Simulated assay, not measured.
Amino acid sequence: MFANWKSAVYEYAHRRNRLEIDGEAGELASMVRDDRFVRKLEGRLRRLQASRKARRAEPLRSETGLKIANADHADREAVVELEFRRSTEYGQLGQTFREERMERERVTVTKNGNQWIITGVEPVMGERRSVSAPVPPFSLAESEDEAAMDARLPSVPYLNYRVLPSVTVEPMHRHASYDRAKARRYAEKWWNGTNPQYMQFEVDCTNFVSQCLFAGGAPMNYTGKRESGWWYQGKDGSRELWSFSWAVAHSLQSYLSSSKGGLRSEQVDSPHRLAIGDVICYDWDGNGRFQHNTIVTGFDAVGMPLVSAHTTDSHARYWDYRDSYAWTPNTRYRFFHIADYF
Rank of each mutant, 00 (worst) to 15 (best):
V135I: 13
L213F: 05
G193Q: 04
Y161T: 09
V124E: 02
E170K: 04
D204V: 15
S155T: 12
P136W: 05
S155F: 14
V167W: 06
E144T: 05
E105H: 12
R162C: 12
Q211E: 09
E103N: 13
G126I: 07
P136F: 06
E122G: 14
P137A: 01
V121D: 10
R174M: 10
E144G: 04
I118Q: 09
G94R: 01
V209E: 07
I117F: 12
T96K: 14
L159P: 03
T206N: 07
A181S: 09
N207I: 04
N112P: 07
P171I: 12
C205F: 11
Q200H: 06
S166I: 06
A215E: 03
W116P: 00
F138G: 00
V124D: 13
W191C: 03
E100S: 04
L140M: 05
E127A: 03
Y161F: 10
V107C: 06
E105W: 12
V209I: 11
R185L: 11
Y198C: 11
E170W: 05
G216R: 07
F84K: 12
E122W: 14
H175T: 09
R101I: 02
T194V: 14
R162L: 15
F201T: 10
E105T: 14
V135H: 01
E188P: 04
Y178C: 00
N160T: 14
E89G: 03
Y90L: 01
S139H: 11
F214C: 14
F208E: 02
V163F: 06
P171D: 10
T110M: 10
R104Y: 14
M149S: 13
R185H: 13
G216V: 00
E81Q: 05
T110A: 02
Y198R: 09
R162I: 15
Q197G: 15
E100L: 01
L164F: 09
V156M: 08
R101H: 06
S87T: 14
D204E: 00
S87D: 12
T96V: 08
Q115T: 13
P134L: 07
R104I: 01
H173L: 07
E105K: 00
R184T: 11
D150A: 04
